[in-house]
């Protein structure tokens, strides 16, 4: 798996470096096998939140950035951790763990009491496309790009999905490994 990591490393935004073109290249992983014309697997970006592995369609991810201290927005909901200034663009960053009830306190990454050291070293912010306005989401670690065939996706168990506005759209499976598929448009407040 080192190859994935190398490739992922290229995703990371470093200050003074423009990675906008990375996604356009399209060649993140090797071309699909010739037999797969009828059902092409779709690419997801897998990441960790608490102890669970989640995945979102790779198309929605704009870039991945290391976690800087954020600027708090007064009188906002707890899920909004703060704003990040990404090359002149001011974007909100949300705490997915609060949204998914994996945690009850917001991550301490904004304001004068920010303590970035409390986050795992691997923590990143995914900047995602969204029609309501692009946004950032904090994750504990970015894992890999996985390919999942649409036909192998399972519907989310009722207990997990909870209600029709659930951001969990399904479960992806690769051998023993489970990926909880998220619709970020629903997950963002």
């Amino acid at each position: 798996m080192p190859r994935f990591e190398e490739l992922l490393e290229d995703f990371f935004y470093r200050p003074e470096e423009d990675v906008g073109a990375l996604f356009d290249a399209g060649g993140i992983i090797e071309a699909p096998a010739a037999a797969a014309v009828e059902e092409s697997p779709e690419e997801y970006l897998a990441f960790r939140l608490a102890d669970e592995t989640y995945a979102v369609r790779i198309g929605v991810v704009r870039e991945i950035v290391k976690v800087p201290p954020l600027t708090e927005v007064p009188r906002s909901s707890a899920e909004l951790l703060g704003v990040i200034n990404l090359r002149g663009e001011v974007l909100p960053v949300y705490d997915l763990k609060l949204r998914l009830r994996l945690s009850t306190v917001p991550a301490p990454i904004a304001g004068p009491d920010a303590n970035l050291a409390a986050l795992p070293k691997s923590a990143r912010i995914l900047i995602v496309h969204d029609p309501e306005g692009d946004a950032g989401v904090l994750v504990d670690a970015v894992l890999e790009v996985v390919k999942l065939r649409p036909s192998t996706l399972e519907a989310p168990p009722r207990a997990v999905s909870g209600g029709d506005r659930s951001p969990i759209t399904g479960i992806g499976r690769r051998r023993e490994q489970l990926f909880i598929l998220l619709d970020l448009a629903q997950a963002l407040p």
Partner: peptide, 22 residues
Amino acid sequence: LGGRLQHVRGISGATDLGNRRT
């Protein structure tokens, strides 16, 4: 603040003061 944060009360936007401080 645009997009999703258009309606934050009492805040009209953000600015950068240098040293990457927003």
